[in-house]
Structures are given as C-alpha cells and as structure tokens.
Amino acid sequence: MKTAVILLPGLNRDRDMIAAITHISGEPPVTVWQTDTTIPDVDLIIVPGGFSYGDYLRCGAIAARMPFMKALKEKAAQGVKVIGVCNGFQILLEAGLLPGALMRNASLKFVCREVELEVSNASTAFTSGYSQGQIIRCPVAHHDGNYFVDDATLKTLQDDNRIAFRYANGTNPNGSIDNIAGILNAEGNVLGMMPHPENLIEHAHGGVDGRALFESALGLVAA
C-alpha cells in the first residue's frame, strides 16, 4: 500500500504524519506539494494538520483552492482513500469533499489535551481495526474544531452511519454537534477528523490507540 502526504505552507503536523506512516507501513510516503497538479498512484492520501496559510480567511479556505485539490478530488472520485486530520479535516470541508463546517471552539480557547473517542462505526475502511463502540484515547490540538452542520445533513450522517468517531464520556473539547469528532463521505472513502491519531501510534507516545486507524486504512488488519 502506498501513501501520499500533502504539504502546504503553515502545516506543522506533516512530519508527525510522515513518521507515523513510515513506522506503520515500513515505507515512507511520497509527498505532494500544494502546487503539484498530479498525485502519484497511491492507495491513501493524507492531508495533515497545522495552520495552512495562517488560517487566513477561514481555516483551510485558502488551502482548499490550491492546485493539488483538483488532483485530490479526482483521486477521491476514483475511490482512493483520503484522510484529513485537524487542519486537513478543515481543508476537506472547505473543498466540499465532506459536509458541514468547523467553527471556533465553543470555549473560544485553543484546546490541547487528550480526549476519549467512541468508534461509532467500526465497519469503515478506516476503523475496521477497532471494535464497534470501542473507546480509544486520542490527542486533540485545535482552536476551530466545533463541528456544525444543518439538521437535515446531520440526520443523513446519522442514518447512513457516516459518523466514524464521537467524543466520549463528556470529553467533547469544542462544542461539536452530536459530539462529532470524525465523519465520512457518502462513498466511505474520505474521512475527516479533528483528533490526531498519528500522535498515539507507538509506546514512546504513551499509547498506541491511533495505530489501528492507519493499519485499517493501509489494509494491515486481518479480515
């Protein structure tokens, strides 16, 4: 399985993501610069976290209009798996690959802490390494993670099992509607999530709860 990691000015979690993919798959990902108009043949494309373009205008708004996005949309339409983490999630929303928007945290504070996530759907390409309803630990670090979507779309997400992760046990750090931490597109090959699973993949991190997400996406989970 080959992976590509998108690079944009202002991202700061790209190296963590590259390290996580290298560690888990045994192969370093290819990197794609924002102005590249093609993405190599890969099985998984990741948009990492950070503060692309300094969060100017709206988080992810400028990044979502850069040339790489056209290629990413084509790959996603072909069924290539895509993960957006944190700013990457914001970018996928701004690009229209996922529904809804991420607003300023309800507390107005930047949150940098560990939360608990419920695996709300373990039957996805990204969560098959977890069990349904499993509670995992995961770090968050963001200022604009307050997921908002209109009522009709929320109902669609709920009815179609497109909510992959929810903040669990009262740990919602940002006021997200329905405790939503991560969602899927209708086809199930695009995942966006605010928490950082790439920062909990080896024992040196103090836990490995994020590992199964990448193992699932990379096809390393025994069926």
């Binding site: 205008l57 709206r58 209009r65 529904p99 809804g100 607003m103 908002f148 979507v149």
Partner: peptide, 8 residues
C-alpha cells in the same frame, strides 16, 4: 467560491 462559506 471563496469569500463566504455558504454552509454557515
């Protein structure tokens, strides 16, 4: 296309 996010 850019200045407003018409979702919100």
């Amino acid at each position: 296309k850019l200045l407003a996010n018409t979702v919100i």
